[in-house]
Amino acid sequence: MAARGDFTITMDRPEIAIRLPVNEDGDLTGWAESTSRARQGFDAEEEDVARFAAEILAAAADSASRDVAMAYLLPDDVLPVEMARIELVDVNPDEEIPEVTLEWLERIYSDPGLELTAPVAVWRGVLPAGPAVRVIRQVIGDVDEFGDGKLLHSVVYAVRPPRTDFAVVLSVTWSAVLLGEELLELSDALAQTLQVLPAR
């Protein structure tokens, strides 16, 4: 759950997902270490605990840099590594974009900004939270000095809740190619649980 002005954004989460403290200040090292150890078991090697703790911290800082409302790291079932990232952000009107429309959201999220490896797939429909557009992209990212990159998948659900002037955007990104269909199904299921409710 995240409070945004006069509204509260809620969404179910996968049981194994780690909520990232994107809106918290202070030293998060202790949180990352305890989370890493709890995930791997208390007999895990110190080196493995430290490595995953560093990955969790880096993920939290990365998500926080985008001013997200909520973020989750989805770990691998077996290995202590990030399998996917789940983020929720609200998009508000401003002087440059006085009205946040589905057409504008589709255009923004369909622009890959990186090298596409497949055509962008767009779906328009209605989710429980309101009218929505879903955009699926596959791009080459994290390109190194030799021109080698990583295949990144992302699915974005941009929703315009009724009786609001903003949009809520759920994004799920991953590089686990073999789990693409499974993660897409998970993303669709999460989008169905998204709610925007008046704050109490």
Rank of each mutant, 00 (worst) to 15 (best):
R13V: 00
L186P: 01
P14A: 10
G41Q: 07
L114A: 12
A64L: 00
S110C: 12
T10H: 01
T117H: 06
S154R: 13
P162C: 12
A121Y: 06
R137M: 10
D12Y: 01
V91I: 15
P198D: 12
I136K: 06
M1I: 10
L28F: 02
R134I: 03
V143N: 09
L20F: 10
E115R: 09
N23F: 00
A44H: 01
L152S: 07
R160D: 02
P198W: 09
M70S: 13
G41R: 08
R163M: 07
R51W: 04
V91Q: 13
L170A: 02
L152A: 08
E45V: 05
P119E: 08
V89K: 13
G41W: 03
L197H: 00
L79M: 13
D6R: 13
A191C: 00
E145K: 02
L190D: 01
R137T: 10
E87R: 14
P80K: 10
L178C: 01
E45G: 09
E24N: 05
E15R: 15
T117I: 14
R200H: 12
L170Y: 02
I108A: 14
L102V: 13
V120H: 00
V155L: 02
P14S: 07
A64H: 00
P21R: 06
L190H: 01
G41S: 07
I16K: 14
D48M: 09
M83E: 15
V126W: 05
D25W: 09
A71C: 11
Q138F: 08
R51N: 05
W104M: 11
S63A: 15
E87S: 15
A71W: 00
A50C: 03
D76M: 05
V49C: 02
D27T: 05
F52K: 00
E47Y: 07
E99C: 04
D27H: 06
S154V: 05
P93M: 06
L88I: 15
S65I: 05
V169P: 05
A129C: 06
S154M: 10
N92A: 14
V172R: 01
A121I: 12
D188P: 00
V168H: 04
D94M: 12
S63I: 02
E95W: 12
L179T: 05
A191K: 02
M83A: 14
L178W: 08
E47G: 07
D165F: 04
V120D: 06
A58H: 05
I56N: 04
D12P: 01
A129I: 04
